[in-house]
Design a binder for these strands. Structure first.
Length: 723
DNA sequence: GCATCGGATTTTTTT
DNA sequence: AATCCGATGC
């Protein structure tokens, strides 16, 4: 079969374009991922490219994974020649940096600092510089440093244009220094240093240029300066660059993304070709018309005309509710009604909002209705304390120079090492010109002098920690990660610390075991690769595909997804567009695009919802409808936009009756009592009970070895052996 | 060294 | 309103 079949003429032209710089401007739902994947396949099948000479980069792991699977299918019989390199910008950079570590101010064992590590390090910096973290919030300084890095501005070049800027400049310099001392890169460094490596080492650059002859980029509108420069360094003078993107969907400006890279590219590569994908395969014409009405108000943009052959569809519903409770109730009720009428499945529905805080009212409403839901983002698995603790232990074992991790675990669980002992230890380490971790190792085997002025107990505690660390390091060299974790947890009696017998304690311990299970799943990965995996994979992936429930997510998180029914809630001026964007033209334009992204996620049904009154920060206020709403022509809309006032009692009553009928028609649990399952850490077991809760399925299993455990189905990776 | 209290803070967050 | 951080007191 020819894989150009099934593509429309525009898609086909883009896919089979001659080698060279290509820009595909693709409207929402126009099959841009499809085009990217087919282009990769085309290069291998028709242009005779070696799969390995392809590099495809995406922004999310999810996109990378999807591409991987689909590409593997397309290239199924061309196996043996290997598969293209495929991953996120950050993962690709980490791979390169690891390989070329001897040219860098870190060792091959460097670790990757995430946001909370970065903030911890910044707190340390502020302390050193005698700055009050209240007046200079670490988060804000971190943001400033991050955008400087994304703009490729080095600390020395950071403009000290104001007092605050001077503070940032100094913090930035010291922060970077400390990162090197910790043998660490932060997220942004991965891009910055990969670029630096290629810029400063001609031989390395030539090597990669020869190796990657074809580069493909997804969501190009979201690249930042560092990423764009990196691309320029990676391609030769006659580049085969295939970029896919949509400037109308650029929503990460505040993270340094610059859709003007699209224009920059057109200027830098005057011989490029542009392809426009305008046919939409996702939404009804009503939805597209509304989307275009919103985005056409956007100044200076290349106009795209979106069309579909899916027909007009149903009108868009605009609904004004009294407050956020009624807003949430309306959403739940409507989803309930749609699913009861069998118009669609619960999983076909999504609720999108501007800020995470808005999920709260929704969660309560779903909870009250006894309906399950799936929440994207918010409470992150890797953000949980116990998970971070364990990762910090592993990182310390892997890289004793990692001071941030050391300080995190040194007294966790408490072992009598308080602020004073730690200070003395840091001082002694500095005096012996060692990183604190290495110093503790020395102290453990009696090769270093104990810190002065400490109680025997504290000094003993430090030495004993050093001995433990040495023992773990020894084991790390020979044991799989999962077994190292066992040894570690056992020797610090972590379970006793975290699991206090309450339900919460059990959950915490279960999270620890899930991480262990993950290590078991990636049994082939060494400690280094495992840590990198953990650092670069976010848990957007925790989204359970199997649970049949509506999805709650921010508009940002919704990009790239589609649902039959979409509710965009909180359409109030001040929320969308967000108040903080009011006085910034560019920011307002981005709010508009954000709304556009939300609208264009919908396939069949679109609900736009707002509340007359909204409680924020304790004070309840009356709000105006979003200014974007007036851009949508009235003839596309249905609903009761003029209806105001407290209909709560009535709504409450209705809710009650509908929920009762719904309670017995929830989504199906995946596991049933009596099933025989296998867990990577606990072995074989029998399911005793399983139920759906808010965003997941909780399974109670009796394991032969490990006893009875309650696990969450989305994380546990259970394998069903037989029912 | 740990618990508790008080005060400040509150956009979005691919990696 | 709720949460998180830091300082204070035991």
């Amino acid at each position: 079969m020819d894989f150009l079949d099934g593509l429309n003429p525009q898609q086909r032209m883009a896919v089979s374009a001659p080698s060279g710089p290509v820009l595909v401007l693709a409207g929402p739902g126009s099959g841009k991922t499809r085009v990217l994947i087919h282009r990769a396949a085309y290069l291998v099948r028709h242009a005779g490219a070696a799969p390995r000479s392809l590099l495809a980069v995406t922004f999310t792991n999810k996109a990378a994974r999807e591409m991987q699977t689909r590409l593997a299918n397309l290239l199924a019989d061309a196996h043996g020649a290997g598969l293209p390199s495929l991953g996120t910008f950050h993962a690709a950079c980490a791979r390169i940096l690891r390989r070329e570590a001897d040219r860098l101010p870190v060792t091959r064992d460097f670790v990757i600092f995430d946001d909370s590590d970065q903030e911890a390090l910044l707190r340390q910096v502020l302390k050193e510089l005698n700055l009050d973290p209240r007046q200079h919030p670490p988060g804000r300084i971190h943001a400033a440093i991050s955008s400087a890095k994304n703009e490729l501005i080095l600390p020395e070049a950071y403009p000290a244009s104001s007092y605050v800027a001077e503070i940032v400049r100094r913090a930035y310099g010291r922060y970077d220094q400390l990162l090197r001392e910790n043998n660490a890169f932060d997220f942004d460094d991965l891009l910055v240093w990969a670029g630096r490596l290629l810029r400063e080492n001609d031989d390395v650059r030539d090597r990669y240029r020869r190796f990657y002859q074809h580069i493909l980029v997804d969501e190009f509108q979201d690249t930042n300066t560092a990423q764009y420069e990196l691309l320029r360094l990676l391609v030769s003078d006659e580049p085969d660059l295939f970029l896919v993107g949509d400037p109308d969907q650029s929503i990460y400006r505040w993270r340094g993304a610059d859709y003007r890279n699209v224009q920059r590219f057109q200027k830098d590569y005057p011989n490029h070709r542009v392809f426009l994908l305008e046919q939409n395969y996702r939404s009804t014409q009503h939805i597209l018309d509304a989307a275009m009405a919103v985005i056409d108000r956007h100044p200076d943009r290349q106009k795209k005309r979106l069309f579909t052959d899916r027909g007009q569809g149903t009108p868009i519903v605009l609904r004004e509710t009294y407050d956020e409770q009624e807003e949430a109730a309306y959403v739940v009720e409507t989803i309930a009604a749609l699913t009861l009428q069998k118009q669609l499945e619960p999983r076909d529905c999504a609720v999108m909002y501007r800020t995470n805080a808005q999920s709260r009212a929704l969660e309560e409403a779903f909870l009250h209705a006894n309906l399950p839901y799936r929440l994207v983002g918010a409470q992150r698995f890797y953000g949980r304390r116990e998970v971070k603790d364990l990762i910090a232990y592993l990182r310390l074992v892997h890289n004793p120079a990692d001071q941030v991790s050391l300080l995190r675990v040194l007294n966790t669980p408490p072992r009598g090492l308080g602020a004073k002992s730690i200070e003395a230890m840091l001082e002694a380490a500095a005096r012996s010109q060692q990183s604190p971790g290495v110093y503790l190792l020395d102290l453990g085997r009696g090769a270093a002098e104990a810190p002065s002025g400490l109680s025997a107990r504290a000094a003993g505690g430090l030495a004993s920690f050093g001995q433990h660390l040495a023992a773990w390091r020894e084991r790390a060299a020979s044991l799989p990660v999962a077994e190292l974790i066992d040894a570690l947890l056992g020797s610090v009696r972590y379970r006793e610390f975290i699991d206090d017998g309450t339900e919460e304690g059990e959950d915490r311990w279960a999270n620890v075991l899930e991480l262990r299970g993950l290590a078991q799943d990636y049994i082939d990965l060494g400690l280094s690769e495992f840590l990198q995996q953990v650092a670069l994979v976010s848990d957007q992936d925790t989204l359970t595909e199997t649970l049949n429930a509506p999805v709650l997510l921010t508009l940002h998180a919704a990009k790239g997804l589609e649902f039959r029914a979409v509710f965009v809630i909180g359409l109030d001026d001040g929320l969308l567009p967000h108040q903080r964007s009011f006085d910034d033209r560019e920011a307002m334009a981005e709010e508009r695009r954000l709304f556009y992204v939300g609208i264009t996620r919908a396939q069949d049904f679109l609900f736009l919802v707002r509340a007359f009154r909204r409680h924020s920060f304790g004070t309840g206020g009356v709000c105006e409808p979003s200014r974007f709403l007036s851009d949508i022509p009235a003839d596309l809309l249905a609903g009761d936009a003029g209806h105001r006032g407290p209909t709560r009692a009535q709504a409450l009553y209705e809710r009650q009756t509908r929920w009762e009928s719904l309670a017995d028609a929830p989504a199906e649990p995946r596991y049933r009592a009596g099933m025989h399952v296998q867990h990577s850490a606990f072995g074989d077991g029998i399911v005793m009970e399983s139920h759906l809760d808010r965003e997941d399925e909780t399974v109670t299993i009796a394991f032969g070895q490990a006893g009875v455990k309650r696990l969450s189905a989305s994380l546990a990776r259970l394998e069903v052996l037989d029912d």
